[in-house]
Simulated assay, not measured.
Amino acid sequence: MWPWGHLAVGYLLYSFWCRADDRSPSAVGTVAVAFGTQFPDLVDKPLAWTFAVLPTGRTLTHSLLTATLLLGLLWIGARRSERRIPLGAFAIGYLSHLAMDSVHPLLQGRLADVSFLLWPVLSPPVVRDVKELFRSFRELRPDPVRPPSVRARRDRARRLDRRWLSGNCRTA
């Protein structure tokens, strides 16, 4: 899933959680949920792709074992802190990221592709070719060629304009 997809799902869940508690989402909570939705990729992708410390971009912080440990430690720290920390918002963002990374493979019945959830107990999923990983980035470029329907409408409008300007078009 793309980063903005994680962000949208996380914010919607955070918003529902706040509304269920009869309150509005706070600015600090919104920042915490936004950070939580991106956190697993902000850690795993650079450690795997740039520094080659991890085997894939979905291992360490994409694991439910790491999530449980990290959120548990943050909860203990939040209880000892005198400041109010939006841990719930961060947890919603973080866990929604893991859930959304799992939905597509689970719906397709590819259970091996969600083995990252139990890393390092299970080995990570097989990594696709790097070219395949970045193919979707290339598809985001704006294409200078417009779809035929848009081009056809534009050409028709130009023909009508020329006919009208030349006086060959009757007005109603």
Rank of each mutant, 00 (worst) to 15 (best):
residue 39 F to P: 07
residue 51 F to Y: 09
residue 138 R to P: 00
residue 170 R to P: 12
residue 42 L to S: 14
residue 20 A to L: 09
residue 49 W to Y: 01
residue 70 L to V: 14
residue 90 F to P: 02
residue 49 W to V: 01
residue 68 T to G: 15
residue 72 G to L: 02
residue 69 L to G: 09
residue 30 T to C: 10
residue 122 L to K: 08
residue 79 R to T: 00
residue 59 T to A: 13
residue 137 F to E: 08
residue 35 F to R: 09
residue 61 T to S: 14
residue 115 S to H: 14
residue 11 Y to Q: 13
residue 3 P to D: 12
residue 1 M to W: 11
residue 21 D to A: 09
residue 64 L to E: 03
residue 88 G to R: 15
residue 67 A to M: 08
residue 74 L to G: 02
residue 47 L to F: 12
residue 56 T to N: 11
residue 15 S to N: 10
residue 99 A to L: 11
residue 75 W to H: 10
residue 30 T to I: 07
residue 31 V to H: 03
residue 129 D to E: 15
residue 118 L to C: 06
residue 12 L to N: 09
residue 165 L to I: 00
residue 24 S to Y: 00
residue 12 L to P: 02
residue 42 L to P: 09
residue 170 R to W: 11
residue 60 L to C: 07
residue 118 L to K: 05
residue 74 L to W: 03
residue 95 L to Y: 00
residue 2 W to V: 13
residue 123 S to D: 13
residue 142 P to A: 14
residue 130 V to C: 07
residue 135 R to S: 06
residue 106 L to W: 08
residue 115 S to G: 12
residue 149 S to F: 11
residue 26 S to H: 03
residue 92 I to W: 04
residue 33 V to C: 03
residue 71 L to S: 02
residue 157 A to S: 13
residue 91 A to R: 11
residue 10 G to R: 03
residue 125 P to A: 11
residue 96 S to L: 00
residue 72 G to F: 01
residue 53 V to W: 12
residue 82 E to Y: 01
residue 117 L to G: 09
residue 39 F to I: 06
residue 18 C to N: 04
residue 125 P to N: 10
residue 164 W to P: 01
residue 97 H to R: 01
residue 155 D to C: 08
residue 98 L to K: 04
residue 53 V to D: 02
residue 160 L to C: 06
residue 35 F to D: 02
residue 34 A to K: 07
residue 140 L to K: 15
residue 91 A to P: 11
residue 30 T to E: 04
residue 20 A to W: 05
residue 27 A to S: 07
residue 70 L to T: 10
residue 160 L to K: 14
residue 74 L to H: 01
residue 16 F to A: 12
residue 43 V to C: 15
residue 39 F to W: 13
residue 98 L to V: 00
residue 11 Y to K: 09
residue 56 T to P: 03
residue 125 P to F: 06
residue 106 L to D: 06
residue 44 D to E: 14
residue 87 L to G: 08
residue 14 Y to D: 04
residue 83 R to V: 01
residue 53 V to N: 04
residue 77 G to A: 13
residue 48 A to R: 07
residue 69 L to H: 08
residue 165 L to H: 08
residue 99 A to H: 00
residue 12 L to A: 14
residue 149 S to D: 13
residue 81 S to Q: 04
residue 141 R to H: 10
residue 77 G to P: 04
residue 87 L to M: 13
residue 153 R to N: 14
residue 34 A to G: 11
residue 113 D to V: 12
residue 164 W to S: 12
residue 97 H to V: 00
residue 123 S to K: 14
residue 63 S to N: 04
residue 27 A to F: 04
residue 8 A to P: 04
